[in-house]
Nucleic acid binder design. Structure first.
Lengths: 217, 217
DNA sequence: CGCTTTTTTGAACGGCGTTCAAGTGCAAAA
DNA sequence: TTTTGCACTTGAACGCCGTTCAAAAAAGCG
């Protein structure tokens, strides 16, 4: 049945993420998945083509989770910004608002990574392989949605008046925060990962935000 | 003998990089390496512990190459900066000089990646696994050296007066450019990789450099 | 109910990293 | 020169991996 069919799909994705949480991407193996869900290894190949296809589907859901968290936090970010301005913690210029919003988004991202460290590490580790499996539909859209959120914040920055530049800036910012998380969060002492990562992100995002209000040379 | 011993070590590292160039990290396999060099698989384990250890040694040499290229280009970057100032292409403020130097370093990095795409991709793909093999000596030092170069450029920036902040800023910048390269260079059309990557780096590095001369909120 | 089609199954296959008993080369001892 | 000792090399063998596909089971159908 189609219903049962989709149920098994979802259950396999669940099992994949569970294995990622336990032992990282290395722990995601065909036989372990089959045994965990109660199907044979062949079923994985019927539903996802191969193991990479299943990992890709799991990655897509993890991306969707991040996107959901991001979307859900736009409101709170605005509220916190208003509070900080009211309390005089930050200024009330366009520059200050852009910087604080970008920091708010970054904090949401870092919190997500901290709360989903193992599975996020698996996503980052895998994405570099691509392998044979083709990217499932909606995969790119998730990323574009997140970059779109950043782009909307950047509308207030003089250097981002052009929509092309704005989109590039949003993508560059996303890539940068991603790079810091990749090199800083997932290295060194786990206990200090979040703090070390956040410190670098604050420095970078603040500098970028402020720089976007400086007129170019 | 020890001499022969070291020769085999170097030859194996050569073969590893050659395989990376041909087929990426996936092509680096114990049997293929052994056959290419003319030793048995066991020798790899005697000399490097396991295949990961050999890959790590190869990565270290690739890092050293990048470092060498970086060091060798500091002079030319200064010359080009002086020329651009003389020709009126950029200003002569501390802000302009920091920005142009950072862009110069970034360009060296992007050129290196473009010229060594396959093996650099292998380095980035592998570093996320770490696996069992311990990092060879001098590995961390190579990275610190490159961050040190960036840090020296940042000495002219007001926000980086504090040495701790300066070091963090240098690391954040390195991570950011790394992130842009990872997400942009190694995705999409190969023919446009360099241009797309460079466009994002210019936007980001320029904004950061300019932002570092804005007094904080 | 029999017949056809679809889906599931899991033993088998090739390839991988890794191991380790057996072999090899070579310098020191006799 | 011959023998001994030993550090190093070897490659067949082992276990595990992703993947396949003939056979079995299940589902659809008149």
């Amino acid at each position: 049945m189609t219903l049962e069919h989709d149920t098994v799909r979802e259950t396999l994705i669940d099992a994949t993420i569970a294995l990622m949480d336990e032992g990282g991407l290395q722990a995601v193996k065909a036989r372990a998945l089959a045994q965990a869900v109660g199907v044979s290894v062949g079923t994985i190949y019927n539903l996802f083509g191969n193991v990479d296809g299943l990992v890709l589907a799991a990655n897509q859901r993890i991306y969707a989770d991040l996107n959901t968290v991001g979307q859900a936090n736009i409101g709170p970010i605005e509220e916190r910004l208003a509070q900080r301005i009211a309390q005089g913690l930050v200024g009330d210029t366009a520059r200050d608002r852009v910087r604080e919003r970008l920091l708010g988004l970054s904090e949401v991202y870092v919190d997500f990574v901290a709360a989903n460290a193992s599975r996020w590490s698996a996503v980052l580790t895998f994405d570099r392989n691509r392998s044979t499996a083709e990217t499932p539909e909606g995969y790119v859209e998730q990323l574009d949605a997140m970059i779109g959120i950043i782009g909307r914040v950047l509308e207030a920055a003089p250097r981002c008046a052009d929509i092309g530049v704005r989109h590039q800036t949003a993508r560059a910012l996303w890539s940068s925060v991603h790079g810091i998380v990749t090199l800083t969060y997932f290295s060194g002492d786990v206990a200090t990962s979040r703090d070390r990562t956040w410190a670098l992100i604050v420095i970078l995002v603040s500098a970028v935000a402020d720089g976007l209000f400086v007129e170019p040379a």
